[in-house]
């Protein structure tokens, strides 16, 4: 599992490759917080290559969303597979996040 962070059209894009779980969630959190501290305000987390997110991973996303909002920033999630969508719906976190079907769709809402 790994995270790839890069900037595209003024948006910090984070690709999560593998699983976002209790064992690696702090790494994702720190990477995003570093960018936030550096002044970035638009974030997109792309789950196209993510197999699973556990409750700790969901918790980190909730926490990041709050911190980004507090700094006047925006966060979008994209490319959730069927299992991940079910997790977001069961936990009602689909009502807390803006979730796009594709990266392009998410980028368009951050423009």
């Amino acid at each position: 599992m790994s995270f790839r962070v890069f900037k595209e059209n003024g948006v910090v894009v984070v690709e999560v490759d593998g699983q976002l779980i209790v064992g690696n969630r702090q790494e994702l959190k720190q990477k995003v917080l570093d960018e936030l501290e550096a002044g970035e305000r638009k974030f997109l987390i792309d789950f196209a290559k993510t197999g699973y997110i556990d409750s700790s991973g969901l918790g980190v996303l909730v926490s990041l969303s709050k911190k980004i909002r507090e700094q006047g920033g925006e966060l979008r999630l994209a490319n959730l597979n069927e299992d991940l969508r079910t997790l977001f719906e069961l936990t009602k976190l689909d009502t807390l996040f803006t979730i796009a079907d594709s990266r392009d769709e998410a980028m368009a809402t951050l423009a």
């Binding site: 918790g59 069961l90 936990t91 009602k92 807390l96």
Partner: peptide, 14 residues
């Protein structure tokens, strides 16, 4: 909803 913790047992049960 905005709390970072407390979803594990809920997910188990669902």
């Amino acid at each position: 909803l905005g709390r970072p913790c407390g979803r594990g047992v809920y997910l188990l049960r669902r």
